[in-house]
Design a protein around this nucleic acid. Structure first.
Lengths: 241, 241
DNA sequence: GAGTGGTCTAGACCACAAA
DNA sequence: TTGTGGTCTAGACCACTCA
C-alpha cells in the first residue's frame, strides 16, 4: 500500500473513530507532516484523495475541515458500485434469476463495444433491502474478458472475483440515469402497479486500460431508493477563460 | 490562471479541436514536459485534473488516453450545476415565477444551516428546453450571505453574480436524487398528468469555507431529462485494507 | 503580519504494460 | 528490456484568511 493511501486511510479512520462532524478542523499540514514523517507533497496528496472522496475540504489560508453529509439511507452513486459496502446499516440480500451465456442485445453489444455475435454472461438479479424489493438488475459481461462465472461467484462478489480471481483491475465507469414508468413485468417484480415511477441506472464499467467489460441496467423501486452525490469545486473553477 | 489549469485547458481544447475519440493516445509525459516547458509534477497535476473531469484516463506503463462518452443529450450531474453551459447544443430558456424575500421552510433552514427566523431569497423558475418544459426549480438563498438579488441577476447567471458581484467563491455541493409521482400543481406546470413519474434533485451549494448558501430543489419532466455521471477509479481502489 | 494551504521545481526511484 | 506513468522528497515561493 502506498504511503499517501495509507495516510488517507488513517485520517479517515481517525475521523470515524472520533465522530468528527462537518466543519471540524484537522491538524495543520506542518503537524501532519511531522506526525506521519513524510514530505508536504505526500500529505497534500492524501488530503486531495480524501477531498475527492468527499471526506474533507481544504481552505487555503485557513485549514483542513471535515466534510460529512447528514442524510442517512442514501445510496452513493460514486463511491461503490458494488452495493455490499454501501448501505452498510441495512440488510441487503439478493435472488439470482438468471445466469447464462448468450448473445448480447444490440444495446449491450454497443455499450460493451463488442461484436453482436460474441458471447456475454447474462446475469439477472433482484435485490432486497430489509426484506423489501430494492431493484432489478441485469448485467452483461463480455465473455472474452470475464471468461468464467458461476453461481458462487455471482452470489458472492463479482468485483472481488474479477480482481482476485482473474487479476483484472477496474478503471472508470460511465453512469446514465433516467426516470420512467414500470412495464408489467417490472411492476410484478417490484410489487408495484404498471405505470408507477421507476428510476433506471445504466452503468458501463471499464478496466484500467479503458476496455468496457460490464454493462449493467438497474431498475429501482422508487420508494426504496434515494441517491446522493458529492461534487467538488475543482471541476467548475476556471470556467471563464 | 495557474500553469496546471492553463495546460489542462490547452490539452482539452486540443482534444476538442482535433476531434479525438475515446482511446486515442496523447503525447507521452516527457513530450508534454518539454512542449509546455514545465516540470513533471505540473504536467501530472494537469492530467489529474483532466482525469477528474472525465476527459482523459491514464494507464501506467502505457500512456494517456482520451475518455469521451458517446451519448448525447444527457445532463451532467457533476460538471455544471448552472445549466447554461451544460446542454450547449440545446436552446434552454426560463420563466421567472417568483423572486422574493421570505422566511425559509423548515427543510430549507435545516439544509442551509440557518435559523428559521432568518431571511432567504426565494426564487422559483421554470426551465424549457427547445420549447418543451424541462423542470421546475425552487431555490433558497441565505440572505445573510447573498445579500441582494433582482430580476436581472436572476435571469442572467446567479453564480456569475455571486462570484463577480459579491466576490464569493463556490466550493463543494451535495446532491440528493430520488424519483416520485407528480402532484397536481407540478403536473400542471410540466404538462403531465398527476401521478406521472418525476425525478427530483436537491442540491446544497457551499462556499469554499464550507458554509451553505443555496438550497435548490428541482423537479424534472421525466421525458426531457436524462443524466450522466463519470466515475473515476481512484475512489474505490484500496478498498480492502 | 502571522499562519496556513497551494504551486512549482529537479531529480531519484518505483511499478506496470507491451513487445 | 524498454518505455511510460506514479510516488516521494526537500525546499522555494505564492495566495489566501483571519485577527
Amino acid at each position: 500500500m502506498l504511503k499517501y493511501q495509507q495516510i488517507a486511510m488513517d485520517i479517515e479512520k481517525y475521523i470515524e473513530e472520533h465522530q468528527l462532524q462537518q466543519g471540524d478542523k484537522l491538524p495543520v499540514l506542518q503537524t501532519l507532516m511531522t506526525q506521519f514523517n513524510v514530505s508536504k507533497s505526500t500529505i497534500t496528496k492524501s488530503l486531495d484523495l480524501l477531498e475527492k472522496k468527499g471526506i474533507v475540504f481544504q481552505v487555503r489560508g485557513s485549514g483542513i475541515f471535515v466534510r460529512r453529509n447528514k442524510r442517512k439511507g442514501y445510496i452513493s452513486l460514486l463511491s461503490n458500485q458494488g452495493f455490499k459496502e454501501s448501505l452498510e446499516d441495512f440488510n441487503v440480500t439478493s435472488t439470482l434469476l438468471a445466469l447464462e451465456v448468450r448473445k448480447p442485445t444490440p444495446e449491450a453489444a454497443q455499450n460493451l463495444n463488442m461484436p453482436s455475435d460474441g458471447d456475454v454472461y447474462y446475469v439477472k438479479r433482484i435485490r432486497y433491502i430489509d426484506g423489501k424489493t430494492l431493484c432489478i438488475e441485469e448485467s452483461f459481461y463480455n465473455k472474452s474478458i470475464i471468461t468464467y462465472l458461476n453461481k458462487e461467484i455471482v452470489s458472492d462478489s463479482i468485483f472481488d472475483y474479477i480482481r482476485d480471481g482473474l487479476g483484472l483491475k477496474r478503471g472508470f465507469s460511465d453512469l446514465y440515469l433516467y426516470a420512467g414508468m414500470l412495464n408489467e413485468e417490472e411492476a410484478e417484480y417490484l410489487g408495484l402497479f404498471t405505470g408507477a415511477p421507476k428510476l433506471c441506472v445504466e452503468t458501463i464499467f471499464h478496466l484500467t486500460n479503458g476496455q468496457p467489460f460490464d454493462f449493467s441496467k438497474v431498475t429501482y423501486h422508487y420508494e426504496q431508493s434515494q441517491f446522493f452525490i458529492q461534487a467538488n469545486s475543482h471541476l467548475f473553477e476556471q470556467e471563464t477563460t
